[in-house]
């Protein structure tokens, strides 16, 4: 899966050989459901196809509250998977609100989170 970034939606890339899903950029679409529906479908397929492991890397500059709802749905879908899954949550060094948002996600799902600061 690969979705190119736009001025208000993030890049979404899954690389099978690296077992990595990257969501990076700004997520501010007015209609977040239309944007995230294929990503949620991909997550269901991922679980059904029995891949071994997955690292989800988030590096978001901004996301609106409706995007937040679908990011939580994505994590909530993937946490049901028997595969080993972890999240790497990357934020800019001066963006404490983005760290807080990551911590909130981390508290709401059972997937382990690693927090990193962008260099």
């Amino acid at each position: 899966m690969h979705l190119e970034p736009t001025i208000d939606t993030p890049e979404v890339t899954y690389t099978r050989d690296q077992h990595r899903l990257i969501i990076r950029g700004r997520s501010l679409p007015e209609d977040a459901w239309s944007f995230y529906e294929p990503v949620l479908d991909w997550a269901k397929d991922f679980i059904a196809n029995g891949h071994q492991e997955l690292t989800i890397e988030f590096f978001l500059e901004y996301f609106n509250s409706s995007s937040g709802r679908y990011l939580l749905e994505l994590l909530s879908t993937l946490e049901k998977s028997p595969q080993q899954i972890q999240v790497v949550w990357v934020s800019e060094p001066d963006d404490e609100l983005m760290v807080e948002k990551g911590e909130e996600f981390s508290g709401l799902v059972s997937i382990p989170f690693v927090f990193r600061t962008a260099s």
Partner: peptide
Amino acid sequence: HRERFKASLNSPVRSSSGLGLIQIAKA
């Protein structure tokens, strides 16, 4: 925010209503 955010997953309406305001209040 955490309670509402969690509850939004089970909401039949795909909306984030009210969460944005709590985020503003937090900031």
